[in-house]
Simulated scan of single mutants.
Amino acid sequence: MNEDKSLLRPEWRQWLAENLALGVGSEEVQQVLVGAGVDPTLAHEEMEAVRKHPYFQACLQVARHFGWLESLMDVYSELRSQDGGRQLEVREHLSPEEFFRRYYFGHRPVVLRGLMKDWPALQKWSLGYFREHFGPVEVEVMMGRDANPEHAAQHDRHRTRMPFADFLSMVESGKETNDYYMVPRNDNWRHEGLSSLREDLRAPEGLIDPSLQADMMTLLLGPAGTVTPLHHDNMNILLGQVMGRKHVKLVPSYERHRVYPHRGTFSHVDAGKPDLTAHPLFAQASVLETVLEPGDMVFLPVGWWHWVKALDVSASVTFHHFLIPGGNTHLEAPF
């Protein structure tokens, strides 16, 4: 990188201030700058200038608060690890009262079994069923995901409308791919042509609003190999697996600093193949794992990070209208 030897570019000044404020050592910072082509004398002068600047003193104060919160979260993580926090519980015949007390208000994920036994979808749903009853319906899917590492955050770039039958033909090809996927960020449930699919579902009694209106759920459908990258939702979610299997990994909300967040709700870490050299703190994360079989549900607490990969052709639904006073709990972004 050919830097002007008399001036450090603004993006490098920002990088310098951020890393010094977060406690990165001077020698390490200097090595990175020199390795990027910055003159050693200029790098040293810039570090000294940054340290003396009043704005940097304010950054240090913010960083101290940030570090204190991270330390508190580390303590909380250690306490939770001794209270079952490193185990993903699997429950059957769970009462609504215990679900809300231990899991919803306890901010714990849980795999729930037996809540979908009365779902017609478990017997009816298949690619052939979709094609026979809904083939001509125009649906929205995300296409060209493989070409964009940021496809999840930049989902609007990938929106494509097509007849449901055309999308089903791609899924039926048997190809394992992440290139095309019907994800929750669409209006397919609200589409008049697919509305009758909701009749194949049942709201888990005592947990979810039984009216199951179109804006109360989402549909996910795609081939084996589809990946939802590590991210968190800003509200509690109940995900039900109808067709196929999905591999799920979860990381607690209070271990945010261990997943290298970016773009607010996404992570730099590839949870399928984490690079611990680039992201060493992820080695300390409490990663909870499960494989969802058809008929399984998993509760994803607000703010909990999750990564999901379809092992087979897969169809899932999600719910977010829980039967609690005041409605679902939401995480409001600070900025």
Rank of each mutant, 00 (worst) to 15 (best):
S173V: 03
R161M: 08
S316P: 01
A278H: 03
E92L: 10
V139Q: 00
P252F: 10
R202G: 04
S81P: 03
R263V: 08
L115D: 06
P149E: 02
V287N: 04
D275W: 06
K124W: 13
L250R: 04
L230P: 01
P294V: 01
P10S: 12
E89R: 14
S196G: 07
L122S: 06
R159E: 11
L122D: 04
S211G: 08
H321V: 13
G174I: 11
S81R: 09
G222D: 11
D4R: 11
G206D: 10
N328D: 15
M47H: 00
A147L: 09
E89Y: 09
D187M: 03
V90F: 05
E78W: 04
D74N: 12
V242T: 09
G264W: 02
G35A: 10
K52D: 06
M47P: 01
R157P: 06
G85Q: 02
K117W: 09
P261N: 06
A278K: 14
F105H: 14
F319Y: 10
V308R: 11
E138V: 12
D118N: 15
V90D: 06
A63T: 08
R113C: 06
R145Y: 03
F299K: 08
G244D: 02
L115A: 02
V171I: 13
T265A: 12
L212A: 05
G295L: 02
Q87E: 10
R9S: 07
F164Y: 07
S211I: 14
L250I: 14
P96N: 06
D74F: 03
D146G: 08
G303P: 00
M216G: 15
S169W: 04
K124R: 09
M216L: 11
E97H: 15
A43M: 10
Q31C: 05
E192V: 14
R190Q: 10
M235L: 08
T177K: 03
V171D: 01
N148L: 15
R245M: 09
R13A: 10
L292R: 00
E27M: 08
E332I: 15
G135M: 15
K246F: 00
H44I: 05
V50L: 03
K249M: 01
M170D: 05
A121M: 07
V183A: 08
S95N: 12
W12C: 04
L115H: 05
L168E: 02
E28L: 09
V111H: 00
P163S: 09
W68L: 09
L60W: 05
A315H: 06
L238G: 02
L239G: 01
R159S: 02
H93E: 14
P334C: 04
H262A: 07
N148C: 08
G35D: 03
R256K: 13
R108I: 07
M143T: 14
P294T: 06
R190T: 15
R190N: 12
S316H: 02
Y103T: 01
L197G: 00
M1A: 08
L281S: 09
T228K: 07
H155I: 03
P96A: 13
A152R: 07
L331R: 11
H262P: 07
L288Q: 00
G193R: 01
R131F: 04
S77R: 04
R113V: 09
H53W: 05
G295K: 12
H257M: 09
A310V: 01
D270Y: 15
V137T: 14
I237C: 06
T318C: 08
P109E: 05
Y55P: 04
H231W: 05
F299N: 06
P184L: 01
